[in-house]
Amino acid sequence: MNVRVHVTPKKGILDPQGATVERALPNLGFEGVSEVRIGKFIEFRLDPQGKTAEQAKAEVDEMCRKLLANPIIEDFTFAIDEG
């Protein structure tokens, strides 16, 4: 399975990087940009080892909670595709 995880700053949490990039873009002539949030993209392969799709999903969810994201300040979403 291919797993793709997006980690972003939690809604409502200050994102200094996003705010700084948002200020910089208009200086280069790119107008109309708002709500820039900068996070991480993580991808990896997961050997299903006989797991059902549900079990794999639960496992990736736990990976995200425990390590890939910091649930105190970050949100995450992920997608798993067979391949």
Binding site: P9, K10, G12, I13, L14, D15, P16, A19, T20, P71, I72, I73
Partner: peptide, 12 residues
């Protein structure tokens, strides 16, 4: 109590 964590922005 976690959601109320402040994030620092040293650049600002």
């Amino acid at each position: 109590k976690r959601p109320s964590v402040q994030v620092g922005d040293p650049f600002t």
